[in-house]
């Protein structure tokens, strides 16, 4: 999981702030590498540590860095893969929320040893949900907040999405308007053939 987050962080920082800033972050972290491979393994804790350095360099909170990275993961026009895979979750945003519990299982179909955190969705009331995300990676909850924010937008829903401040891994989602905007188009057939 660290590898996936590190690669995503690298993509987000390079795309948004430029490669030199990313190199500065890596040097300041005392790392000998500047590129991360999503299919390799890195020491646990590397992702949280590097994100904190990036936040320091950018003068922002680490939570904001993770959230923006989550948004970038879904909205980055050069890599539609994550958005497309998530959109298979359902027709509407609430369907999508309900599909989150199945997400780790689906991901394991593609990569057997992927260690996505368990996600649990509780319906608190009409259009009110709580998602529980337990992971040893502190930033992951904020990444999920970013992903949810971007996906709500993708589905055209207006939502209030908040993570708890105590680090309990809980996210409150309130759907204010399911049909606030037109959902972005999603064709089941992959652009350019089988994948």
């Amino acid at each position: 999981m660290d590898a996936l987050l590190l690669r995503s962080l690298q993509g987000y920082v390079c795309d948004t702030f430029g490669v030199p800033l990313w190199q500065a972050v890596c040097r300041r972290s005392g790392l000998t590498v500047e590129t991360f491979e999503p299919m390799l393994r890195y020491d646990p804790g590397t992702a949280d540590r590097l994100a904190q350095v990036a936040a320091d360099v950018l003068g922002r909170s680490v939570e904001a860095v993770w959230e923006d990275m989550g948004i970038h993961l879904v909205t980055n026009p050069r890599h539609q893969g994550v958005r497309r895979l998530l959109r298979f979750g359902g027709i509407g945003f609430t369907d999508f929320l309900h599909s989150l519990e199945e997400l780790p299982g689906r991901a394991r179909l593609a990569v057997a040893d992927i260690d996505l955190p368990d996600l649990q969705l509780d319906e608190l009331g009409p259009d009110r949900f709580e998602i529980c995300c337990q992971s040893r990676i502190k930033g992951l909850v904020r990444v999920l907040v970013g992903i949810l924010t971007a996906m709500a937008d993708d589905y055209g829903s207006l939502c209030l999405i908040e993570a708890d401040d105590q680090g309990l891994g809980r996210i409150q989602v309130q759907v204010l308007d399911r049909f606030h905007n037109t959902a972005r188009r999603f064709d089941l057939a992959a652009p350019g053939g089988a994948g």
Binding site: G81, L85, F88, G90, A107, A110, F186, A189, A190, G195
Partner: peptide, 26 residues
Amino acid sequence: GLTDGDFAATDLAMELLFMAEANASV
């Protein structure tokens, strides 16, 4: 040009499509 609404909720069509695309990505 089928959509997920074209399949029964119990159909594993979405899982198959998800897997094909996820495998291609990997």
